[in-house]
Design a protein around this nucleic acid. Sequence first.
DNA 1: CTGAAAGCGCTTACAG
DNA 2: CTGAAAGCGCTTACAG
Lengths: 349, 349
Amino acid sequence: VEPPERRRPPTVADIARRAGVSTAAVSYALSGRPGVAAHTRRRIRAVAEEMGWVPHPAARALHGHGVGVVGFVVAGPERLFGVDTYHFRLASGMMRELSAHSYDVVLHEAAGVHEAAALYRRWHAERRVDAVFLSTLRYDDPRIEVLNELGMPAVVYSGPDVGDLAWIGHRKSDRPAMAETVDYLVGLGHGRLAYVSGPLDMRYVTDRVDAFTRACRSHAVEQSTVVTGDDRGDQAARITRRLLSRPGRPTAVIYNNDIMALAGLAVTTELGLDVPDDLSIVSWEDSSLLRLTHPPVATVSREVASRGGRAGQALLALLAGEPMKGALLDPVWLLPDRSVGRPGARSAS
Amino acid sequence: VEPPERRRPPTVADIARRAGVSTAAVSYALSGRPGVAAHTRRRIRAVAEEMGWVPHPAARALHGHGVGVVGFVVAGPERLFGVDTYHFRLASGMMRELSAHSYDVVLHEAAGVHEAAALYRRWHAERRVDAVFLSTLRYDDPRIEVLNELGMPAVVYSGPDVGDLAWIGHRKSDRPAMAETVDYLVGLGHGRLAYVSGPLDMRYVTDRVDAFTRACRSHAVEQSTVVTGDDRGDQAARITRRLLSRPGRPTAVIYNNDIMALAGLAVTTELGLDVPDDLSIVSWEDSSLLRLTHPPVATVSREVASRGGRAGQALLALLAGEPMKGALLDPVWLLPDRSVGRPGARSAS
DNA sequence: CTGAAAGCGCTTACAG
DNA sequence: CTGAAAGCGCTTACAG
């Protein structure tokens, strides 16, 4: 057996020599731009094909062409990596769309939005990516500023209010879905509702909180509670324990994500309470985890990967230079399941 | 509003002009190699710093230097992406290690090992990555062959039997941990054990199956069952239902991952059985999910991200040209929890 | 329509 | 120790 040597791949010069033309002719022929006769083009392409030629991206990048890479920085907090799968699912959908067009996706974790912004600067200086995707917008998000300053092509997952950057998102963020969820619970007879939220510096969280509060007020529910969570399951468990062990405990709880809902469900069961008779449980952003629990948990939104796919399409449009300002995602709604019912149904019947 | 312009970053020529030296002097000064006087070097570096110079990776790549990117292809099956978080956690640990050394990580999903091998060919031809990380080895894995043929630097997560490629892994794969787990369960009095495995084309799976079978045989347990799963929760639920509804049902089940264990736990509870009195449950590769369930589930291995970190270190060694053939990971063992107990403890007490 | 030439930003032998 | 020059693989005005 021969030693596995990295064979030197053929260059345009090799092709030019073999085809008996100049490297410029090869370049024009291969790029598909006018400048060579049709038959010359055919011949050059045949030679290139035969020699297994593939363009060297570094050489192309030197001429201002893209490097064929899109970056996605997941901005902390660090303790969530590998627990909350939300961003990975988003990335997964995005990758599928982009890789079909030969784009690679660089995934990066940053401890926070400032670290993410610093990374954008480095990526820009080193020309490592052609565009970035950005999600989970904060208030006064420093990333937006930096991207605008650098003139770095970007798609932001948010509402239509991110300055000049392109975006995808829902028309009124998560407000309509939250309002509808509260309507549904109230319609079932729930009078004491709680929302265990995510961190309040996230814009989508305050949107949900606000919609929750408004909807509860408009229905004049007996009691509405918002508890600020940190998206972690163990904290959600502690919060749930506290909520359920006080008098006038809620009859329905909405959790910010599936890990939290899972933890809430476990605590409820452990306390000897029944779901949904004693407590109805609703979650957001499910990863299909909650269809495996007993009982399965109702969730507002599931198809995270498909939203990542839409992000990928938006990025492709942007990179192709197409006019691309914003794209609305399909609205999400509560999908009821056995974790939700009329309060006290068992004891009542 | 002005269109956001991409400012032209400074080049070595800019620095040379400003410092009054040649571009060669700049290159030597910046690379840290001999060729310029110490004070010249200092001055040039100061100018570079002041101008915010960062090397253009494409230009460096043209000289045979690496592009500063490591690739990790997760090879199917597709339906698992975004559900099983194992590879993401592995990638997360790897990223942390590599990004500290300014390497980016390209994550890619492929439908299977042949698709992954094809992607390696493209990456090699396009010089997109300096090295790859490869996990979840199959039998006669085509990826190994292709990587050897291309002479592409790679670290394989496996045992020490991958030809000339570098590897990380456990000395005897997962065999010792599985054997110890069976010992532990038998020691508690379990006589009917089941292992709900992953797909049998994975080498680590057959290692676990083999160790399970041997250990059960050596203890002469009354009954040992291996059911081949596909790593999905819904299938694990069906398997568990079948296992538990037949006479002589197992008293302890080992699941191949945490999603399967979660589903198994839910089915057991739904059937009105108690964990651990009626059934003890053990899982593998937990993402901390199983510390949130009721009861929390005993798992064999948890620190997946830290193993990804070790992979990252191995890759860095390889890329630095250090002699790097193999590295052993810390052994993993069963961490008992409340999902495991003596069979029939409650009825007995 | 075609070719010779310069250039992208960096590195590296090669003379001084 | 230093500088002028060539080159990595490709692209793109610019003459013919």
